[in-house]
Amino acid sequence: MPKNYAFIGLFGSGKTEVAINWALKLREEHEKVAIIDGDIISPYFRTRDVAEKLEKLGLVTVYPKGALRNADLPVITGAAIGYLVNEEYKTVIDVGGEENGVVVLGYLKPYLGNVEISMVVNIARPFSSTVDGIIKAYEILRSVARIKVDYLINNANLSYETTPELIHKGEEILSKVSEIIEVPVKFSVVPDFIEEKNFKFPVFKIHRFIEMEKL
């Protein structure tokens, strides 16, 4: 079993929600779980914006503390490395979007150790709705980060409008991608408001943490 888990992907692929939910799942079996906000791209809607909530749920949240929390600076706190190498902790790292965000993973590479790296894909997003688009993103991300992607994650979603049909469509497209690049699909993300359980890939149920008022 890996000690560390990293989630990468394009802008808005849903990395943060998947990373948070994965960390909480790890917490069910492990006493010490840390989640690193490695997002140097998004100015808000990040792990650190729900840090207090996550701390209450038993996670250690790792992000630049104090004034730097809200700074418009690409800061990765030194504590991130501490949690990545500390064998007592299962550590999840949520990396920012696109090639500029994934640079962080390249930088942390010497400390990643026994790590599992997954690329989160949402086919309802621009630039990742087709097999070609996803493969292009995959090639760019893995070469910039200088890492091997272990798994793909089907996170086909339209936020609160997500349907089982969309998730099935995501599975269909990711199956083709998986065949071409020879990277297996780890699971399909299914939001907690969807009942259906009959999916091609294992189901990973998630609860959304980062939300605005709906209309």
């Binding site: 802008f11 997003r125 621009p126």
Partner: peptide, 14 residues
Amino acid sequence: ERVLVKGTEAIGEA
């Protein structure tokens, strides 16, 4: 088709 976009991207595509 419905797509999931950020407000900034939405303005750009529109």
